[in-house]
Every structure is written in structure tokens, then in C-alpha cells.
Design a binder for these strands. Structure first.
Lengths: 348, 348
DNA sequence: TTGAAAGCGCTAACAG
DNA sequence: CTGTTAGCGCTTTCAA
């Protein structure tokens, strides 16, 4: 291993000053005036020695490790978690913080991740990020109160911890508006049947656009099922088989859209000429690999990760007020990603 | 924040012993005999106080942080990285180590991640895991030599650092054997056209099975293109259009298989009755969502992550020899994942 | 079998 | 404006 690297002492010696001065200069300690010339000498000495602070010593002294714990459900199964990590990571780097990631299983019901939170606390993280796999409301482990925390993609049932979630309604509005702008008025909606915010939010967005554009709401154009490929296929099959079939489909997610693609193909409907489709989630693996490429709505995972860390930093610095933030979850935009699955309706 | 938590001192006091004894007992320091009764008293005291060691102090004293750095390319874009993280994480937890993950961009050519490695070293990680996005040979950043390291999914061009990679040949053998066992003899191979180990290894496995089963090799049944859906579609279209078309297709990866599915559908070939298909990679999002489910070969990402940490631990404990391991990369099995895309050929 | 005490490298009073 | 110095909580040598 490397030769025992230089310490603050060595820097002090080389610069011909005391360790105090070095510490002050290197940390930019406020309320401390050090002569410009001395500053420069210290910086030079540090550079020539390749000095880097010993984090352990710093941590011991300051009680801050510079570690942020990220508790994430199901890192493995979804690329979404990856985007959150990436956003959080980049923001963390900006602030010279390091992310410690702990993967957890998804918790059924009101189980909490108390054990995992404890592991993070034992590691003396300065704060924790708590990310769920999909937008929902959760009960938090009680020990999460021991440390500053921010929720990602979920809201705190108790309304105590700040949270950031996707703007489901807004995303749906973008999607359906896109369809309306292309000239569609008979727009089907293949919804999820779980009782989660996305289900309700996306449906609300759908209705909202219809209303705004004075398009009558037709119950026959809305169907719900588990948000997987096969159920999506089934729903689409049925809905597209009718004489008065929709000319466009807004799907709860890309997997359901994938099912709709197959249904369309079987019915001899060409996308987008006979049928336009918009998905939700922007799962690259699906959306970009379908023929034609699926126009869909992206979830702001990267941005949520970023927002969470930035907020945590403000909280730690006392620049943001905990209670203020926790009051209402922060909504982040879900932008439309245009590919090739939308066109004007044929008989238009 | 929590009340300043108990220290080793408090435990000592409560147990009526010295801090030395507490330290010895709690760390199970070898060559130190402590009376059973004293031991018990210490443990009890620790438990009642909810004592947990201060990592920073430990780290400062022992020069070991218990942190393992994981440098991973493109966490965001591929679920594969997630599996590696998961495997590494679980293994790390077993040894009371914490994973610090740094995401990096993929490096073109012989660029290295020197900066990222340095960031990890600055954080005083005890060792680093260096994971690439796909199996290949890399030049390592020089500073990786400063700390114990293990490569995941890539091999060190210089042959200095231990590495673990998938057994590409074995995986292909499983896939093609599965097809042969189903009764196929005209088996097409849609290969990647990059010069990477997977390309060569999977091809070698393909040929090997043909040889073993005395099936003549037919050049017309092998084609190569970029390993994406669209090129896969093109290749499959062409190969399946011939009169003497193969009855089964082994695809370099699931994305190409997805293209092959579409080609088959367009040609009116039903899977698996008219055409059997086997993929590679087991990308859940694709493989499980295709109709019918794609039989494919899984990459051992989880296992590689696990192996890497275990090996690192042995290295750190001096139980494994660096040079011995680095000599040849360790190969891990690629198991076949059977779904519904393979059946006996029709005219069999 | 147990304990006293010396630091690990750094920060931050406090003094000059 | 700069320096002296006392610990942060723990491990470990050495002595009892």
C-alpha cells in the first residue's frame, strides 16, 4: 500500500506555519483571517505533498462522516433505482459527500425497513435517503427520526419527512395532450388497477385533458388491469376489437403498451397510422426497442435523486426548514419523450 | 439527533472493568484470555447501553474504514449493474463491510477511471471493486495498484489484478445443447459483430456443441450485426426467408432475440412451433415480457459481485494470494433459464 | 487475567 | 494574524 501519506503536520512544517493555520486555510474556516501570502504557501505545500485529509480523523473530531445513506428498494430489478442513484450521486459529489447504498426488499404492507435504517445509522451516516420502487405512501421506521431524512418516490403517511415524487397528473396531461394535439378524440386509457397514486393521478390527468378540450368522457374507453404486458394485451385486444375503437391508446406504463403493440399487430392495425400509442415510464429497454419506438412519459428518477440530496444538504446546513418541506411532497415534472408511435388519426 | 450514544468507557464503567477489557471482549481479540464471567458482564453492559462502536474512531486507530469502493460503469442504464451491486452488497454485509458505489461513464478506448479511483482512495476505502458494463479487457488506472482490487466482468490487460467473468463458452454450450436436445439440427446463430470476448466465446460454444453432436457447421446459418433489436430483426428476416431456413435460432442476446421474434411474426412463423429461439443475458424486461417467454441464458452478475467481495476479503486477510488469482480470470457459470420459446422442430 | 496510558490525525477553543 | 494544546473514541503495547 502507498507510503503513509502526508498529514496536516507535514504540510504545516513545509509551509512553515502551524497546523492550526493549515486547518484554517484548507477548510476555509470562517471568521479567520489568514494573510494571502500564507494561504498560498499552505496551498502550495499541500499540493506538493499530495495532501488529502484523513476522513476518519475528521469524522471523529467533527462528528460528521460525509456519508449519506441511500436505502433503496429493489435496486436489482429496476433501472429506475439506477437513475435515482445516479442523480443522488452526482449531487452528492458536488457537496463532497459519499453515498452509501443499501438495498432492501420491497416491504409488504406496513412493514418498515427499521433494520436497514439502523445499519445506516450504525455506520454513522449524516443523513438518509429513503427511496421506494414506485410512488406510494409509506409508514416510516421510527428510527428514521434519529437522523435527517428525505423520501424519494414515496410520501410519508405521517407527513413528517420531506418527500419528492413524480407529478403523475402532469405527466398524464402531457401524454394525452400530445394525442389530442395530433388530432385524436377517441382516446382509450389502459390503466393499472392498483390503489396507488400513479393509478389515480394518471387517470385524473387523462380526464383533465378531455375536459379541457371538451371531449366527452366515455367509460368504454377506460379499462384497468394489473400493469403488466399480458393484461395490457388483453385489455387492448378487447378495446380495439370494437367497431367504435379508439384511434389512440394512453397506457399506464410501457409494459402495458408493449401488450397493446402485440394486440394491434394481431388485429392488423399499424402503429402509428391506424393506432397511436403513448406509454408511461420510459423504460428504455422496452420503449426504444419496440417497433416503432414508443412515445412515452419519463419518470424524473434522476431529478428526484438530485433533489433529495440537495434538499438534505440544505437541511443539514439549516438553510431549509424541515417542517416546511414535509408539509407537502414536492412534485417533479414527468416530461414527454417523443418517439414514433403517435400520428394523426387516419380518418382525420 | 439522538442523545450522545454510549461509548466504550460507559460500557467499561457499567461492567466494572477497564476499557481495555471491553475492547478485547467486544473485538474477540485473539491471544487474550478474559474470564468467561467478565466476558458476559461486558456483553450485558454493552447490550443494555445499546453500545455500538464509533466507526470513525476505529478507523482512525486501525487504518481500516470497513468501506469497499465499487466503481461501476453505467449503473443507470442496465439492470445488470444492479445485480452486481446486490451480490456485492450481500457479501459485504456478511463481513460487516459497507459498499460505497461510484458510478462512472463508460470509458472509450483506453481511457481509465483514474479520477474515480482516486475519489475512492481519498475516501480511504479498504479495497476497490472495478466493474464494467460488459465483459471485456481493460487497462487499469495506475492508482488502482495502491489498494487491493478485484475486477468484475472484465479482465486486466496486464494480468495483475484478479478478475471474475462469465463463462461465455459454457453459457452458449447450454443454450445450443438445449436446442439440440429438443431435436434441432439446423440451428442459426445471430451473433454480435463487436470484437469482445462474448462474441468469440458464444460462437465457440455454438461450434463446440455442433461438433460434439456431429452436426455439420453451415456458414449460411451464422450472421453477425450490432447486438440490437433492429439488426437482429434484419438478420433473422434474411435467414428465415430462405427455403432451407433454420428451425431454431440462438441469439447473441435478448435484444437480438426480440428482433427475431418480430421477424418470425411477420413471416407467419409461430414460436416455438415453427421456430425455437434462445437468447442470452436474461434481461427480465425483455425475456419475460415477450410472447412466448424467451428461453435464455443468465449472466452471473449477482454471483460475480458476491465472488468479488469474498475474494477481496480473503485478500485482505491474507488468505488468498494475489498473484495466484490474477493469473487467470475466474469463470462463473451462465445458467440456462427455460421459458417457452423452445420446442421440438415440426418435421421431427 | 486485567488495567493504564499512549497515541491515530484532525479541529477548535484559547492565548498570544 | 498565527500558534499551543486538549481532546474526539478507540486499539494496543506494556506492565502489573
Amino acid at each position: 500500500m502507498a507510503v503513509k501519506s502526508a498529514g496536516i503536520r507535514d504540510v504545516a512544517e513545509l509551509a512553515g506555519v502551524s497546523v492550526t493555520t493549515v486547518s484554517h486555510v484548507l477548510n476555509n474556516t470562517p471568521h479567520t483571517r489568514v494573510a494571502e501570502e500564507t494561504r498560498a504557501r499552505v496551498h502550495n505545500a499541500a499540493k506538493t505533498l499530495g495532501y488529502g485529509p484523513n476522513r476518519a480523523a475528521q469524522a471523529l473530531r467533527t462528528n460528521r462522516t460525509g456519508l449519506i445513506g441511500l436505502l433503496s428498494e429493489e435496486i436489482a430489478t429496476t433501472p429506475h433505482a439506477g437513475r435515482i442513484i445516479l442523480g443522488a450521486q452526482n449531487a452528492a459529489r458536488e457537496h463532497d459527500l459519499t453515498l452509501v447504498i443499501i438495498n432492501t426488499e420491497r416491504q409488504a404492507g406496513n412493514g418498515t425497513h427499521q433494520g436497514d435504517v439502523q445499519a445506516l445509522i450504525d455506520r454513522q451516516v449524516d443523513a438518509v435517503l429513503y427511496a421506494t420502487m414506485y410512488h406510494r405512501s409509506v409508514s416510516l421506521p421510527p428510527n428514521l427520526g434519529e437522523v435527517p431524512a428525505v423520501l424519494i418516490d414515496s410520501t410519508d403517511r405521517a407527513g413528517i419527512v420531506p418527500a419528492v415524487v413524480p407529478d403523475e397528473v402532469g405527466g398524464a396531461v402531457s401524454a394525452v395532450s400530445h394525442l389530442v394535439e395530433a388530432g385524436h378524440t377517441r382516446i382509450g386509457f389502459l390503466n393499472n388497477d392498483d390503489d396507488v397514486p400513479a393509478t389515480h393521478g394518471r387517470f385524473a390527468g387523462y380526464r383533465q385533458v378531455l375536459e379541457t378540450n371538451r371531449i366527452p368522457f366515455d367509460e368504454a374507453l377506460v379499462a384497468a388491469a394489473p400493469s403488466e404486458t399480458l393484461p395490457g394485451y388483453g385489455l387492448a385486444r378487447r378495446m380495439l376489437d370494437s367497431a367504435d375503437r379508439p384511434t389512440a391508446l394512453f397506457c399506464y406504463n410501457d409494459r402495458m403498451a408493449m401488450g397493446a403493440y402485440r394486440a394491434a399487430m394481431e388485429l392488423g392495425l399499424s402503429i402509428p397510422d391506424d393506432l397511436s400509442i403513448v406509454g408511461f415510464d420510459n423504460q428504455e429497454l422496452i420503449a426504444a426497442n419496440l417497433f416503432p419506438g414508443l412515445t412515452t412519459v419519463a419518470l424524473p428518477h434522476y431529478e428526484m435523486g438530485q433533489w433529495a440530496v440537495e434538499t438534505l444538504v440544505q437541511l443539514l446546513h439549516g438553510e431549509a426548514v424541515y417542517e416546511l418541506l414535509a408539509d407537502k411532497p414536492t412534485l417533479l415534472d414527468c416530461p414527454l419523450v417523443v418517439r414514433d408511435s403517435v400520428a394523426a388519426p387516419r380518418n382525420h
